[in-house]
């Protein structure tokens, strides 16, 4: 049984993010291509490529997801968000053709998470994006399951390098099932071992505590 000193919060995956999930925090820093729909006075320093004081209307720039999500509003058009190219028509055809050949780590690494977040921006292609995300996940499921349930005691870095972060988490939960079964079968589960917490614990010296 693997014990950890803390329980990480799982990513929210869908339209909602988990506030305390480290993956979702990293995800919210992904950059999105946007186009400003009104001028932003005195925010010119955000756009490094121009020297003007303001950001004029119609500028194309990149903003992190958290900022675009906060600024985006359906009624007052502040900015419009363009789809990153992996979610556009061309790549969607690739994903629908054979999701197994795509290197999602290079594309993402938060392909599913970012794709679900893109649905906030009311693009007309939303239903297709949601459909492609689901199809991609289903198409890659079998390979992910087989590799996670069969790779025992071997280097898995080649297997996980093309996986999205979400799939990596699934892979490791598949591995934990396999490892616990294998260690039981080999009789290693019946041996008592010290908890990793105890092993990591060192006695505190009085000098370390007092400044």
């Amino acid at each position: 049984m693997d014990t950890q000193s803390y329980l990480p919060v799982q990513p929210g995956v869908g339209m909602e993010e988990n506030f305390l999930s480290l993956d979702d925090i990293l995800l919210s820093h992904e950059r999105l291509p946007i186009r400003t729909e009104c001028s932003f006075p005195r925010l010119g320093f955000l756009d490094k490529s121009s020297d003007s004081q303001d950001i004029p209307e119609g500028t194309k720039m990149e903003l992190p997801l958290w900022l675009s999500k906060g600024l985006y509003e359906k009624k007052r058009r502040v900015l419009s968000v363009e789809l990153p190219k992996v979610y556009r028509e061309g790549w969607r055809t690739v994903f629908n053709a054979d999701p197994n050949v795509v290197d999602l780590h290079k594309m993402g690494p938060y392909y599913y998470g970012l794709g679900s977040q893109m649905l906030h921006f009311d693009s007309p292609e939303n239903p297709e994006i949601a459909q492609t995300l689901l199809q991609t996940f289903m198409g890659r499921f079998r390979r992910n399951m087989d590799s996670s349930q069969n790779a025992y005691n071997e280097d898995t870095s080649a297997l996980v390098e093309r996986l999205d972060c979400l799939e990596k988490a699934l892979f490791s939960s598949g591995q934990s099932g396999l490892n616990s079964f294998q260690s039981w079968e080999k009789g290693r589960a019946s041996q008592l071992t010290a908890s990793s917490l105890v092993l990591n614990y060192r006695k505190r010296k009085i000098n370390d505590i007092q400044p």
Partner: peptide, 11 residues
């Protein structure tokens, strides 16, 4: 995960 990706389809 699949449940969440599926619930994306009904915005």
């Amino acid at each position: 995960c699949m449940y969440k990706l599926r619930s994306n389809q009904q915005p």
